[in-house]
């Protein structure tokens, strides 16, 4: 070896084993790429659509309309003192944050297989970049929420300041699951079929278009095992000034959500070294 006189190597490549550090510093160094990928997704999303970005507003409005009709007019569930449409819209707003974070994050690796197999970059950049689109969707839908509340003359409460907390926890939970699912999907495309089915199931198993109080009492203790349940209720409570779920169930949901994110991120890092070989 003729290494004499050489400085320390700039970089050493050797096999890793076991758990790896998240290395968020490196993700930060690639922040330009993260935002460019997000920008690309945004630019492409509504290309060649007649209504363009209007869909960001139309989609949740239409969904809320259908849910209000089915759960309010057909199933005749109560809306607990707030206008039915607002009740459903608020639930869907939080739900969409969860489902689009999960959906986008879980498919991002397989959808960018060409990038993964041909270029190096911290792989976490891909799922994290999907958050940008989701946040923009949420911001627009939230602005619409405020407009709706003005139309319905629904008063604002100071608890609305807690919204970012619930939103953050919901995204943590969804991102944790999404990271895990995306890494698994590299080897097992089955995950791509399971995630939408489970998401659909969760939509009905969580108090999105109905309230936890409408669930039969003996089932409620099972319901709150789903961390999304308390988070959705808390989210809606903060916007519309309704009752909050029990503090214990909120603490539980917060811990589960943060754990889900941490576990998901580390599992992703552990599995990522096989991505390029398998994808």
């Amino acid at each position: 070896m003729t290494t004499a006189g050489n400085a320390e190597p700039y970089l050493t490549i050797r096999p890793r084993s076991g758990w790896a550090a998240l290395n968020l510093l490196e993700v930060w160094q690639f922040r330009d790429l993260l935002f460019s990928l997000a920008g690309r997704d945004l630019k492409l999303r509504y290309r060649q659509t007649a209504l363009g970005a209007a869909w960001v507003i139309l989609q949740p409005l239409m969904a809320a309309g259908i849910f209000s009709f089915v759960f309010g007019s057909v199933a005749k569930l109560p809306s607990h003192g707030v206008p039915r449409f607002l009740f459903t819209y608020a639930g869907l707003l939080a739900w969409n944050a969860f489902s689009s974070t999960l959906g986008r994050a879980s498919t991002c690796l397989v959808g960018s297989s060409q990038l993964v197999s041909k270029v190096y970059f911290p792989r976490l950049v891909l799922p994290l970049s999907t958050l940008v689109s989701t946040f923009i969707d949420i911001a627009v839908a939230f602005a619409m929420m405020l407009v709706l509340m003005a139309l319905y003359r629904q008063p604002l409460h100071w608890v609305i300041l807690l919204l970012p907390v619930w939103m953050g926890l919901i995204c943590c939970l969804a991102m944790g699951a999404g990271l895990y699912a995306s890494a698994l999907m590299v080897s097992y495309r089955d995950v791509g079929y399971i995630v939408p089915v489970l998401t659909q199931f969760l939509l009905y198993a969580s108090p999105v278009a109905y309230a936890l109080a409408d669930v039969p009492a003996h089932l409620q203790s099972v319901y709150v095992l789903n961390p999304l349940c308390s988070l959705l209720e808390a989210f809606r409570g903060s916007i519309l000034g309704m009752d909050f779920p029990a503090i214990g169930s909120l603490v539980y949901a917060a811990i589960v959500s943060i754990l889900a994110f941490v576990i998901g991120a580390f599992a992703f890092r552990k599995m990522e070294r096989r991505f390029a070989d398998v994808i």
């Binding site: 190597p9 700039y10 970089l11 050493t12 490549i13 050797r14 096999p15 890793r16 070294r273």
Partner: peptide, 9 residues
């Protein structure tokens, strides 16, 4: 990643 060995860049 390599399965074994080391590369210094």
């Amino acid at each position: 990643e390599p399965t074994a060995g080391q590369i210094d860049l």
